[in-house]
Nucleic acid binder design. Structure first.
Lengths: 173, 173
DNA sequence: CCCTTGTTTCTGTCGAGACTGAAATTACGC
DNA sequence: GCGTAATTTCAGTCTCGACAGAAACAAGGG
């Protein structure tokens, strides 16, 4: 793996995006590096390529593994650990979005259900406010259900649907 | 507007979500409050309800206005500013997602196009790496195009499409 | 059983950005 | 124009999380 200008630009940008998507910079940079690398990399190679502390790489890889974005592999006669990323872009995003659903959508859904239940027998809360809560619950609920189903659709079918774009409306009618 | 337990729970949760979605806690809390409020609120009412500094409210409201999530209104014989949020949940999320597209998807697209162009005439970068870059570009590009089109579809049609869920695949065949 | 090599845990430092409160500014009634 | 109330700007404080580096810990090899 070579840090060519294009690779560097990619990795740096991905790192920035990572910070906006709920992980830290290093985790995202490592994922980017492994995604781009033609061969699995060792932790100490990553240390050199990204100039970060060894311990940082160790922790970050652990996190990536726990999310299923990165796998460990080995070479014959070499006991060191090598790591590689998922390479299927669709699969990558499926995993990432699933994480976010778990961490954000589900808790929000729980909170909304709690609120909705609570205001049923609640004379304090304004009727309009109650409706607003119910509307939001309904929205998040249907988004969640929709995602649940769509995430099951195979990639090949999904790409076809996406290629349709707004033409999808014609089919629905 | 009354800070009932349900409202408080909602506002606090929304604030937390805000931090994960690229704005700060106060901005999100204010938006939540205004969304739930049956009537437009003044800045100093928000100060009392949320217990944050006046200046903080001022800045946050400005940000919400600039994104088009909050509007200023007035009362007859009262020169103070009142604020209210968009109340249509779909519209709300359309605006929020549009923000994120501008701030994240578009720059990423630009970066990927830059990288893809750069590696065309680049003997340093591994062929596999080049392919990975192109794959990612293709993915982000089609996602972007898809969103561009889908965001134009009226809410009523969208809800119908979402209600279909995975049944959508049958139509495509 | 010790030594080497690789990996993880832990503690302290640092920086970014949210938030406060005071000072400055604006708008308006009188 | 002057005084008052509302709003904004700004500089300083504080908190949280990322990260480095050292120390502890495993796992083989000889």
């Amino acid at each position: 793996m070579k840090m060519t200008p294009a690779v560097e630009k990619y990795v740096l940008h991905w790192g920035e995006m990572g910070t906006r998507w709920g992980t830290n910079r290093t985790v995202a940079q490592i994922q980017a590096l492994l995604y781009l690398s033609p061969k699995p990399l060792r932790a100490d190679e990553i240390v050199d390529l990204l100039s970060v502390a060894r311990s940082n790489v160790s922790t970050s890889i652990r996190e990536l593994q726990s999310h299923g974005l990165v796998r460990m592999t080995h070479m014959l006669g070499d006991r060191r650990d090598y790591f590689e990323s998922l390479h299927d872009v669709w699969e990558l995003f499926r995993v990432i979005i699933e994480q976010r659903k778990q961490k954000e959508l589900n808790p929000t859904l729980a909170m909304l259900k709690g609120c909705a239940a609570e205001v049923e027998s609640d004379t304090e809360t304004d009727a309009v406010t109650k409706d607003r809560i119910r509307n939001m619950l309904q929205f998040v609920e249907s988004t969640s259900n929709w995602y649940e189903q769509v995430s099951q659709i195979p990639t090949s079918t999904l790409t076809k649907i996406m290629a349709l774009g707004a033409k999808i409306t014609k089919l629905v009618k």
